[in-house]
């Protein structure tokens, strides 16, 4: 795999001049994925969302590679169709049989965990030669920070408000990475923009496999998380160091932790800087805060027991 110096020789497939917010984690994720993808041509699909609208505002496109957006819930199905066309046109003799092209679909957590889950599950089960990348920022940011099934418990969002009757989101988040691992596809990984080496390595593996691969990438949203926009990468790093977002992969059914966390820090270090968790630190919410830590510990331990196992 390539180091940073080597990566500078590759073309950045996402051009600047897009209109994502300052400090957006999604574009960092896209750049790292596509730099890791290697040198073969890549066709990109994208679900409706911040990334899509901000990078394709007519008549400007930030994509330096073929790009398609269809709708919100169907980037996986759409890219599966593109990949099928590639095979069909090869069979028709219109594309040389030895031509190699890679296919990737991006979606946010709303477009992936929620409305696009069926489309994603179907495409992965069918075995298309494609990578699906979820950039997880834990809410519907494009429509204004509504809760999704990726939103952490206790987080404020505009549809999981904070008040006397309720302290933010009342449910636990869904573990999509493990759901995708249960599809028994060749490669599934969880990565974070803060760990570029781990992320680009995972992207390289995902693009190299024949068949479907899934990457779930932690990509903070300064606007939705109520954090300063220079701290996007810092907060992502904190998520990894507190065990909130473990970095691991499932390769042909083998679970492996890719970044070890030696002295796992308390989850409050991840929560405290974020305005969306402010209320958890108010008097009376001690039990809720403790519950967040308990959940992280429990999930961490459950995951540890899978590493090295088949």
């Amino acid at each position: 795999m390539a180091n940073l110096k080597e990566l500078t020789h590759r073309e950045d497939r996402l051009e600047g001049g897009h209109r994502l917010c300052a400090g957006c984690g999604a574009s960092i994720a896209v750049r790292q994925v596509l730099l890791g993808a290697g040198l073969e041509p890549v066709v990109v699909g994208c679900a409706t969302g911040c990334l899509e609208v901000s990078t394709t505002i007519y008549p400007y496109s930030s994509w330096k590679t073929p790009f398609i957006h269809n709708a919100f819930e169907n980037s996986a199905a759409t890219v599966s169709g593109v990949e099928a066309a590639f095979k069909g046109l090869k069979a028709a003799g219109k594309i040389p049989a030895d031509k190699k092209v890679k296919f990737v679909a991006f979606g946010g957590d709303g477009g992936t965990y929620d409305i696009g889950l069926q489309s994603l599950s179907g495409a992965m089960e069918r075995g298309h030669d494609m990578v699906y990348v979820c950039y997880d920022n834990g809410a519907y940011m494009n429509t204004g920070i509504q809760r999704s099934s990726a939103t952490p418990k206790g987080a404020w969002a505009t549809t999981s408000e904070v008040g006397v009757a309720q302290q933010g989101k009342q449910q636990r988040r869904k573990d999509l990475t493990q759901i995708m691992a249960a599809h028994n596809i060749p490669y599934v990984a969880q990565a974070s923009i803060s760990h570029w080496k781990d992320l680009t390595m995972k992207a390289e593996k995902a693009f190299a496999v024949e068949g479907p691969a899934f990457l779930n990438i932690f990509a903070p949203c300064p606007r939705g998380w109520r954090i300063p926009f220079d701290t996007t990468v810092e907060i992502a790093k904190s998520a990894v160091q507190t065990g909130y977002w473990p970095l691991y992969e499932v390769e042909d059914g083998v679970w492996r932790q890719t970044v070890k966390v030696m002295n796992r820090k308390p989850v409050v270090e991840f929560l405290k800087p974020q305005g969306r968790f402010k209320h958890l630190f108010a008097p009376g919410n001690e039990a809720l805060l403790a519950e967040v830590q308990t959940d992280v510990d429990r999930q961490w331990d459950a995951l540890q027991s899978r590493f090295g196992s088949v």
Partner: peptide, 16 residues
């Protein structure tokens, strides 16, 4: 896995 995905895949394939 659904008609929505049928037409979604058709859109992708036709655009391709």
């Amino acid at each position: 896995e659904s008609e929505h995905s049928a037409m979604s895949a058709c859109v992708g394939a036709s655009a391709a």
